[in-house]
Amino acid sequence: MERTRDKILPVTIILAALVVVWYVGAVMLNAPFQRDLDRRGDVTRGTVEFLQATLSQPKPTLPAPHQVAQNFVENTFLRKVSSNRSLVYHAWITLSSTLLGFAFGTALGIAIAVGIVHFISLDRSLMPWIIASQTIPILAIAPMVIVVFAAIGVTGIIPKALISIYLSFFPVVVGMVKGLRSPELTHLDLMHTYNASAAQTFWKLRVPASVPFLFASMKVGVAASLVGAIVAELPTGAVAGIGSKLLQGSYYSQSIDMWAALVAGSVVAVLLVTLVGLAGRITETMMGARPA
């Protein structure tokens, strides 16, 4: 009951308000074109009829929510998955490179973090450059990465996954360095009194302590991976994937398709983050953490 009042109700009302704003915006943005169209076609409409017309244009400036929903449902559930108009097909293309990049990015991030925690010279020399590496707007050069790899004959999933790796390793490094250093001095001293070796301290104290940090940064990393995969699909003549769907939509002004692709990308993002969060919670429960 309390949960309904404090959490679900406010979110629902705000979301409903957003939908209303969306409808109003759709009417306002589509009205000039519709008026123009009616004048040329010599059509006179009543107010209600006019509003309906603004909300059902084939290529509206701002598609109404129900148009987007209809397009999304049509292309997700009613089409064959193998059809290249199916959003499931495009989402899968994007998802596969996201997951590949995310897996390697996380592994790389953990490896670098372990190195940084164990070797002080790596900490001093590598860390500033890892931070500097993120000032390079990699998303901005994604087209170059794709084209360059295409020039030497590497195409398909690997260049896209590379961009996802680049984007997802950084949050993992930062989170894991923090996590591996999170055991307090007293805990480290305790391990010392047990005469624990460096490896034992690592596996029995540092690794368990870093698990919550790992999953928190993996959530950030997986979202970044998805963005990387989507942007990586923008160049290269755009064959398949959510990014290419966006680009095609923008070429042909298929605004409804564009919005539906955006919704598909968002659904994938929410699913991925939720899954990582769930995996984190299960792991922590299995390790004996008390639910917060």
């Binding site: 979301l15 979202a223 963005v227 989507i230 939509g249 605004s255 564009m258 955006l262 929410v270 991925l272």
Partner: peptide, 19 residues
């Protein structure tokens, strides 16, 4: 909502804004 949006590929609105 704000927390959820931070995970979304917002960059995808770019073509819409250009339109």
């Amino acid at each position: 909502i704000g927390n959820m949006v931070s995970a979304l590929p917002i960059i995808g609105v770019a073509p819409i804004m250009v339109m």
